[in-house]
Design a binder for these strands. Structure first.
Lengths: 341, 341
DNA sequence: TTACAAAATGTGCACGAGCACAAACAGGAA
DNA sequence: TTCCTGTTTGTGCTCGTGCACATTTTGTAA
């Protein structure tokens, strides 16, 4: 049976209010009393009942702001689904979740949205940060003003956020390389299509991919890396060019969006089942290509779970206030095949 | 801002107690009053604040029993970790989790443990059921006596449990087959080692594995399926025999435990990197073999998450009592490689 | 000793829902 | 009308915590 403040008070021969002051580090308690209470609380292993706590505070309306990249990205749609799920679960605790989406991928816009949230009185924020020093500085400014900020998906160096939720994208790239090596043990030409968006994840994936191939002295030969804008026609064009210029292309690695265009191109050239394809994000486009065998492996980052975790972590920080842990949450890399979904 | 009973009471010109009776379907309210209250509650989209609810009931001490197979299985250890995590999170709501482990894998023992839990007054149970009609009947008896029972990991047909948490093991087998096909596009002999435990999951995995190969008219040839007791020396012996009798063995699929023995045998014969290996469960033994390249793919079922979900589902059923949903929770199949962890 | 702050401690209400019991009301019989 | 019974409605306390304010104790100077 859990220990309550009342029980501690009785054992220490003081009132509930005094115990409350001690446990919440408020002034107005004699040193000896404080220590006596602290000792008893420790002995009984007191843990505040957060139901009582939350009930009291549920009128306070803690606001959480979440800053996402533009909504046309299906990955973002799933993150939002997870956020909404968490919102349902935690709204009884008096938290309010506000989602703000960028229109562009400009640092200036992200900063102005962060300012907006601050002026709306958000006590906590989760940000998918654009990889830019001005964004980093803004985040650090918010932290120094006492706002709990966590970043997710793409890590940027030098931020004082108390927690990062996301994948190790280098590891994602390494995993992709490992898979292509398994699919193509005898080597061959491999093309890489990378997103041109200014999010650190794509560069990191590429880096991991190249590192892994180098380390294992793989017989795979990486062609010139092509950038695309995560658009279907863009990726389509790049794939066609790869195939035309390298008739014995054996594999493709796509770090970001535009996968549907790759599929169309391979289909057009009748190469769907002849070229090994590894890509990221389990969005509807990818699922179709996985099912019909065009894509061999799709790597995922559980966006729904990620969105849910964002809210949960901020909730635990803001409402439960249990531990000021600075622990990053690494989202595992999921690997999907034709049969696994 | 959420609607409270008090607000409904004021709008309906009745007292809190009356509203309470209506919303909890208790007698002693005039028909017209009941309907008036119901109408207002619906209009305002009233949802009970479960903090208040839980606070009141937190003294009631709802007991949840969880019945697991023997503890020497590392998979079970991780399930337990997830259960403990959930326990920490939900104990404030007055739930008590009791874990009972089988010693044997005998139906009779499982039934006696279920009886034990019932006599201890468990309001909910989560059971990893042994595939036996007597167990099925016992579960149905508990359900008919008003105990909320969920099954997990291995589904058995004909139970009235309100929810099953676990994988589609046939799909797991199919996935394994698909991976071996990718690793061995030109075909060859493949051995299968299956656990002899009486849990439906192993048979289902085998079934899915064979189905997939058949459907895709794969050039892989499956050798006689060997049973093992999930023991290292057992799997070691089987692997040696496979390799001796079929010098050009190309792949192995292991549905259950004993993977360490497979590794030792392959290592001894210097075949670790020459034979494709796909196995189940991300237990420490598997991780070692994944890292050193002996195992190509390991399929997982997120045991920690599974354990957490068991408690969470029973909590939502017993404490929140929100929806009597009969929804199964399908645990996704995770695929791990050398690089992905 | 008294006076009077300042420090220390205690008390009461709030949060939202549940539940036991009290109070008010209706209808019928004498 | 009075009395009784059963139905319907209202009240007050509980759960554990936080916070404002009331009360008591302490220390110090007059």
């Amino acid at each position: 049976m859990a220990v309550t403040i009342k029980e501690i008070a009785e054992l220490a021969n003081v009132s509930r209010g005094t115990v409350d002051k001690v446990l919440n580090d408020r002034p107005g308690v004699k040193k000896e009393t404080r220590q006596k209470v602290l000792k008893i609380a420790k002995e009984l292993n007191y843990k505040p009942n957060f139901l009582g706590k939350a009930l009291v505070q549920s009128k306070a309306h803690v606001k959480i702001g979440i800053v996402l990249t533009p909504e046309y990205n299906p990955y973002i749609q799933e993150v939002i689904a997870g956020i909404k799920r968490a919102q349902d679960e935690f709204q009884a605790f008096g938290i309010e979740v506000v989602i703000k989406m960028l229109i562009s991928l400009e640092p200036a816009e992200q900063i102005s949205i962060l300012n907006e949230l601050e002026s709306e009185g958000a006590a906590g924020m989760a940000v998918l940060p654009i990889d830019d020093p001005t964004v980093r500085d803004k985040i650090n400014q918010l932290v120094s003003r006492g706002i709990d900020v966590i970043t997710f998906n793409s890590k940027i160096e030098g931020t004082n956020d108390f927690c990062f939720v996301g994948q190790d994208h280098r590891k994602g790239g390494r995993t992709a390389a490992g898979l292509l090596m398994k699919l193509l043990p005898s080597g061959g030409d491999v093309g890489v299509i990378i997103s041109s968006y200014r999010l650190s994840c794509h560069q990191n994936r590429l880096q991991g991919f190249l590192d892994k191939l180098k380390e294992s002295s793989s017989p795979l030969h990486v062609l010139e890396v092509q950038e695309n804008q995560e658009r279907k026609d863009d990726a389509f064009k790049i794939t066609l060019e790869y195939c035309n210029q390298h008739p014995d292309l054996k594999g493709l690695y796509i770090t970001g969006g535009g996968i549907a265009g790759v599929g169309s191109a391979l289909n057009l050239l009748n190469l769907s089942h002849k070229i090994a394809v590894v890509c990221h994000d389990l969005i509807p486009d990818t699922l179709v290509l996985l099912k019909n065998g065009t894509v061999d492996f799709a790597l995922g980052q559980s966006p729904d779970f990620q969105g849910y975790q964002l809210v949960k972590i901020l909730f635990e920080r803001l409402i439960k206030r249990q531990k000021p842990e600075n622990k990053d949450v690494e989202i595992p890399i999921t690997i999907a095949t034709q049969d696994s979904l």
